[in-house]
């Protein structure tokens, strides 16, 4: 955030904080010009807008949300020099914990307490490929998510959907 420091250099004459008479209007107009420029030169890509419209299908009040409670990307101290470190995620909903390890090869996880559960890897508002955990609650998915993803799980406690994450 260094550019605030050099900011006053080329602000000769009106670098003070107080706006002079009529200046606010000029700045408002400039902001409005920027708004028009953004609408023309950097608008929301139409395909993204469409995806957001379709995302309404993800609205499901019957599913419980399994909240992200640990993300190694944020909560862990990186190992110096280590690359391709798996990303560890933990989600919680009620009494159920879901541990997930995300690597370049795909994802592995475990539902705790150990149980047989149905797992679906979601990548958007269409249903994902169904998986089943083993008796220990473990599952493997051999394709790395190529975008936003979430897991939908049918567990002893009902249907859970994890928070969406950017892979």
């Amino acid at each position: 955030m260094s550019d605030m420091d050099d900011m006053d250099d080329d602000m000769s004459g009106n670098s003070g904080e107080a706006a002079f008479e009529g200046e606010d209007l000029g700045l408002d107009l400039l902001e409005e010009e920027l708004r028009r420029a953004a609408a023309i030169l950097d608008p929301v890509p139409p395909e993204l807008r469409q995806i957001a419209v379709e995302a309404f299908a993800l609205h499901d009040l019957d599913a419980q949300i399994a909240e992200l409670t640990f993300d190694s990307m944020v909560d862990a101290i990186p190992v110096r020099g280590a690359t391709d470190v798996p990303r560890m995620l933990t989600f919680h909903a009620g009494g159920v914990t879901v541990d997930v390890e995300l690597t370049v090869r795909g994802l592995m996880g475990q539902v705790l307490p150990p149980q047989t559960a149905g797992v679906e890897v979601l990548s958007g508002p269409v249903s994902g490929s169904p998986l089943e955990t083993d008796a220990m609650g473990r599952f493997t998915y051999d394709r790395p998510p190529a975008g936003p993803f979430a897991l939908r799980l049918r567990t002893d406690e009902g249907v859970l959907v994890t928070d969406w994450l950017t892979a």
Binding site: L48, I51, A52, G147, P148, W164, T166, A167
Partner: peptide, 28 residues
């Protein structure tokens, strides 16, 4: 949402992903 993503100067692909993640979460 797009402005917030753009203001963080991610790559094009990452910008698209984050935009979607935000909306998926919101729907959820």
């Amino acid at each position: 949402v797009w402005s917030v993503v753009r203001s963080h100067r991610l790559s094009e692909a990452d910008a698209h992903e984050v935009y979607q993640t935000a909306w998926f979460r919101f729907a959820q």
